[in-house]
Design a protein around this nucleic acid. Sequence first.
DNA 1: CACTTATTTTTAGCAACTCACAATAAGGCG
DNA 2: CGCCTTATTGTGAGTTGCTAAAAATAAGTG
Lengths: 161, 161
Amino acid sequence: MTEHFDGQEAWAAALRAHGRRVTKQRLAVLAAVERHPHSPAESILAAARAELPELTAQSVYVVLGDLTDLHMLRRFEPPHSPALYETRVGDNHHHAICISCGRVEDVDCAVGHAPCLTPHWNPDAKPMTIQIADVMYQGICQDCQQAQKLPSHSPSQEKEK
Amino acid sequence: MTEHFDGQEAWAAALRAHGRRVTKQRLAVLAAVERHPHSPAESILAAARAELPELTAQSVYVVLGDLTDLHMLRRFEPPHSPALYETRVGDNHHHAICISCGRVEDVDCAVGHAPCLTPHWNPDAKPMTIQIADVMYQGICQDCQQAQKLPSHSPSQEKEK
DNA sequence: CACTTATTTTTAGCAACTCACAATAAGGCG
DNA sequence: CGCCTTATTGTGAGTTGCTAAAAATAAGTG
């Protein structure tokens, strides 16, 4: 317990910079998210409790929500999954999710800064001012592909009767 | 009540083609989704009940789930919103959501068939086999932009203390 | 028309959050 | 350094959106 003083202090500074108070709860949450990117609130709670056992679920929800609003954290919601959080913000990157095992990988933005970012509006649509474009790739990771080829019986696909 | 026999029959055919039974509930749900694209289950229930008052919420969930699996419907889940459904499937198009009022607009795929679709994998990542890429644009629609410029008091933005 | 079984209904149940309010403790101040 | 204000956390309850189990109903088949 000696090498995370710098991270500690960095987060503290960031909190102060945003006019937030530096509490052990917030530091614990931040550290937990940093160490377990792409995690849901529940896992973050569990991870944070390792170093702060009395931490509450509510606090985690409140903190995650607040820090996300401040853009100190980024939240995204894959289909059929609770919201996931990560500390990597500001660089607009995307995510690939394995529909089989749920694993999430980061994917850098394909097209530089603004991704596939300028939508082609239908002639009849009233264009919006786009602020961000979340791209969510869905596929099958190598491990799961392997598993499907193997012996097994049910590929658990469509049933179509 | 005379002009929707064709739609009726088209959906019935599609259901049969997928080995599903043609029930008034399924037809009502399909019709409701078609008439109210980008709607959550609850709204679809309400809309469908207009023509089939005894329809159950459960049935709607079951039907929506089943038809989505069959790709007769498409589901997507904007942040902070329940799942939305639409009948426009097969043409990979995307969605733009107004973060202020929640309105959803369809956006045709920018890059032809596969959208911005080939992720650039980080050197250390094990690439997945991508099947689909959902792009979710978030921004502010013209109406809401207007509203924000106007007199009002709280733009309901960050608070940053 | 009878029969099989998909589909719907009924009734519970649950996960992931949100809300309201009391208790606690940062950070500013004298 | 102790006091005070108010952000933050904790407590306890409540909600939404959806899934599960089992009984009732009704498509489609022969």
